[in-house]
């Protein structure tokens, strides 16, 4: 049984469904990457998994339990965490307060997790008392990921973590993601930089029109000439 299992999910924002039967399964050891053209339903898949988009049919299970249409405050304690693409930090709060908010659902002492996050992103330790709104784009992305890690998730959902970042930061963020995965956190992310992201993905999903088009390891998908031609720009 995989850690997360999305089965034939149909759903959307109330009007015509955006997802028309999406299937995704990920192990905790995996880095899963969802790619596809604009409007394919990549971000919507993540949001459906995280209870932010209504699932009208199909099912989602996590660690063996059904979580279809469960809300975030129930999902976070179960071990799911989500980093939105935009507005993903509390701009008026300090870096450390941002991280604390990620641990809101935890009742235990989270100081070791805090140290672990500072270990992962040393620059955050340096700026711990600065307001998150004053940081650069790349640093904000680190705050956002750090916040999501504070709940000690088993699976981290990332919505276009590299969006809007300079190429230097893109590489750095990808390295961090691999590092987080090595420490035992499963990753499921949506990426525009498809070729770059698939290169380190253990599972790759190509979506189009709200349905799976291709599934395989990252390397397989990159090697597949159909995928390359239609979705990776040749």
């Amino acid at each position: 049984m995989a850690l997360v299992e999305i089965k034939d999910v149909v759903g959307g924002y109330g009007g015509a469904p955006i997802l028309n039967g999406v299937n995704i399964s990920i192990e905790q050891s995996d880095i899963g990457v969802i790619v596809g053209p604009n409007g394919a339903g990549k971000s919507t898949t993540l949001k459906a998994l995280f209870g932010l988009v209504k699932v009208s049919s199909g099912s989602i299970s996590f660690a063996g339990g059904d979580i279809t249409n469960a809300l975030p405050d129930k999902l976070v304690p179960k071990g799911l965490s989500f980093v939105p693409q935009e507005k993903n930090v509390f701009t008026s709060m300090s870096v450390e307060e941002n991280l604390e908010m990620g641990a809101f659902t935890r009742k235990d002492d989270f100081s070791t997790t805090l140290d672990w996050v500072y270990d992962m992103f040393p620059v955050l330790l340096e700026k711990r008392n600065q307001k998150a709104g004053e940081l650069s784009g790349g640093q904000r992305q680190m705050v956002a990921m750090g916040r999501a890690l504070m709940s000690q998730p088993r699976l981290l959902l990332l919505d276009e973590p590299s969006a809007g970042l300079s190429p230097r930061y893109v590489l750095e963020i990808f390295e961090q993601i691999v590092k987080i995965n090595k420490s035992g956190v499963g990753i499921l992310m949506v990426e525009q930089n498809a070729r770059q992201a698939l290169a380190f993905a253990s599972r790759g999903f190509v979506l189009a029109n709200g349905q799976n088009r291709f599934t395989g390891t990252g390397a397989e998908l990159i090697a597949d000439p159909d995928v390359a031609k239609s979705f990776l720009g040749g």
């Binding site: 975030p72 405050d73 939105p84 993903n88 509390f90 701009t91 709060m93 908010m101 809101f104 916040r147």
Partner: peptide, 10 residues
Amino acid sequence: DNADLAQVSG
């Protein structure tokens, strides 16, 4: 500050 993110944070 950010109601959506507060919800996402659990």
